[in-house]
Design a protein around this nucleic acid. Structure first.
Lengths: 210, 210
DNA sequence: ACACATACGTATCAAAAGTTACATATAAAT
DNA sequence: ATTTATATGTAACTTTTGATACGTATGTGT
């Protein structure tokens, strides 16, 4: 676990904090499509993502859903952070987009470290800031972009987060993530293919331009 | 200033903190349409709203804009808080919806009080939480609601924040706030009037059902 | 090889939202 | 009272998005 922590977090945290994380954190291996946090669940642990990618989804009471953003290495879910400190329930769902590893930190330590470590406070503030920015970006996308642009942004974002220009997904899955219909996605994907931006295969999309 | 602070914040903050707020805060009177924070501006003071109402607006690079939510008595702008601690620039605009009063707190004290007062830490966490919830609500609205529902929600929200069932506004202003066109707003407002939910006048909308 | 489930392509139609254009109404200014 | 600016009502049309329907393609399991 120490070596895995070193990878990314040794630049961020001071040695004493790394030791504490090692001591009180739990290393968790997540398989693709594993659920980290569900809507409505209480949160008692907060994940620090070591590698992989997590998709954060908002789901409303009718079961309609929409992807908000992705988390990657070095990120934490600031929303669950707030929920955690606040003892409120999660309003979003987190699902592993690929096999990932995370360290789970118990709530108790979150608060303790806030008082104790400056780098932890900075990390928390920075996380809040990133997450707020991503929420704003999600709002911009919904408020100002048409479906074709949203689709292309979705593909680009996913390429970046998956570190792979070939996405293994279906039109139906994309439709769910964008809260639209499969037919609309197929139509717009075909347009993007005609523009030379992507190449379509069964269960697979090559993103040529992102 | 002390009496104004008592009104709302005496339940929230301990007496010593109230004394500090009185000492280091600046009481500001805001007129309707006054600008509190602009997009791209650096923030060195954070407002605690004593009374009135503030409209928080997101504006993209093309100048398109959309209302995110409203702040009222007892609220603070958690986004500007993060920007403040982070020394980053604001991504939203805050405008007084009616005459309001706020106390401006300098950044330096924000951080100091975080270490010193438990009630302040709780207030900050609570603010973050409220703001995240409001962002999620804004996302729900954009992602899952059609324009007629969004329009009615906008009117209801405004009635609540203004504490007045008669709204003094124009179709054009609503169109700007919802990032749509005036014609669409007029059309849908007429529908709402036919449903008996509102009554239309020049520069004025009576909201009958909210 | 065969059925079967799943994925994808596309035509047709309908609804929602945006655009243009113009008429009318109302308040303020001269 | 007349002009002027602003606000609102509405028709006609276009674009975008969503819904339905059905055909074809591809991979899986028997």
């Amino acid at each position: 676990m120490r070596t895995k922590l070193q990878d990314y977090f040794s630049i961020v945290f001071e040695p004493e904090l790394l030791t504490e994380i090692e001591k009180f954190g739990t290393l968790v291996t997540l398989k693709k499509d594993d659920l980290l946090i569900d809507v409505g669940s209480k949160i008692t642990q907060v994940p620090l993502l070591l590698n992989g990618a997590i998709k954060i989804v908002r789901e409303d009471k009718n079961g309609d859903e929409i992807v908000l953003y992705f988390l990657e290495r070095g990120d934490t879910c600031a929303i669950s952070f707030v929920n955690c400190l606040n003892k409120s329930k999660s309003k979003v769902r987190g699902v592993a987009e690929k096999d990932s590893e995370a360290i789970y930190i118990p709530v108790k330590k979150l608060e303790e470290w806030m008082a104790k470590y400056k780098t932890w406070r900075e990390f928390v503030i920075e996380s809040y800031s990133s997450r707020l920015d991503e929420m704003i970006e999600a709002i911009d996308t919904l408020a100002f972009m048409k479906m074709d642009e949203r689709l292309f942004k979705y593909l680009s974002d996913k390429v970046k987060i998956m570190r792979d220009t070939t996405l293994n997904t279906t039109h139906q899955q994309i439709a769910i993530d964008l809260n639209t219909s499969r037919v609309v996605v197929s139509r717009l994907l075909k347009q993007l293919e005609n523009l030379g931006k992507i190449k379509l295969h069964r269960n697979k999309i090559e993103v040529l331009d992102f």
